[in-house]
Simulated scan of single mutants.
Amino acid sequence: MDNPTGWSGVGVPHIEAVFFDVGETIVDETREYGTWADWLGVPRHTFSAVFGAVIARGGDYRETFQYFRPGFDLAVERERRGAGGQPETFTEEDLYPDARPCLGELAQMGMRVGLAGNQTARAEEILKSLDLPVDVIGTSDGWGVEKPSPSFFARMIEEAGCPAESVLYVGDRLDNDIRPAQAAGMSTALIRRGPWGFILDDHTVSSRCLFRLIGLADLPHLIRGHNPHEA
């Protein structure tokens, strides 16, 4: 975890709200993608390798399924999994260990805290059931718009209730999270975990992040340091 080279954060306003992407930022999706490999009937290692290759060439992760089953319809297969008693799911155990403590500490600091990601209605209900210490849970299904659409980030800023530059968005993807958040005028923090966090790299984008992270444990401390009267 560090401040990015060449970007001191000087001139960035006081952070008042912190919103987080969900997959691979708050939730470890290892088990979930493993169950998709099982559903397709392919070895998990093979599925993971193809998944990484798709990401590395800048493709949409959903293209992975087409390699194993051409014409694969993710929405239809989600319904089939549910009907077959194998719905997509995650539990408290799938949260990254530093997620809940970080959210809780930020809330105690008086931050408005939210989750906002490309997730299904089912995932939104699961997130709500986990009783996380957040003020807002927003998903693409619930908001009717997906990242990286500017409308998604406009909705997030509206939910934050403060100027865009005072909203920090934390995510693992440069393409879906960081770049569009910066375009919307938000402050950003890139977390290096999950496939996208390790494979994708664009210094012109990452160098403009207020923070670059390897985990969430130190984020509250970093924000206190950035907001002088929070120290």
Rank of each mutant, 00 (worst) to 15 (best):
W196S: 04
P4R: 04
R78M: 12
D135Y: 06
E16T: 06
G34H: 05
F90S: 10
I26V: 14
P43I: 10
G6Q: 06
R224A: 08
S8N: 04
W39L: 08
T25A: 04
T204M: 12
G114R: 07
A53D: 13
A17N: 01
V18P: 00
Y169G: 08
H45R: 13
V10I: 01
A17F: 00
F19N: 00
H45F: 14
A99M: 11
I157A: 14
A231R: 14
A184G: 07
E16Y: 01
D73W: 04
G34N: 05
L216V: 09
R57F: 09
I223N: 00
M111W: 10
D28W: 06
P148H: 07
F152V: 01
Y61T: 13
D73G: 02
L74D: 13
E158Y: 14
G142W: 02
G6V: 11
G34F: 02
D21A: 03
P133T: 12
L200Q: 11
Y61V: 15
D60R: 13
G104I: 06
G144T: 12
I55G: 00
S151R: 15
M156E: 13
R78P: 13
C162P: 09
A107Y: 08
D202Q: 03
V205M: 09
S206N: 09
A217W: 02
A75E: 15
F198R: 13
F51R: 14
E93A: 12
E16I: 05
V113A: 05
G215A: 12
S166K: 11
G82V: 01
D98H: 02
Q108S: 11
D21S: 02
T25C: 03
A99T: 12
E146V: 15
D218H: 07
A181I: 09
R57D: 10
E230V: 14
A56G: 07
H221M: 06
L213R: 05
L210M: 07
T91W: 06
G41Y: 01
T139H: 12
M156K: 13
A56R: 06
P87R: 08
I15N: 03
A189C: 06
V136P: 13
V50C: 07
Q86W: 06
M156Y: 02
F198L: 09
V134Q: 08
D202E: 08
Y61Q: 15
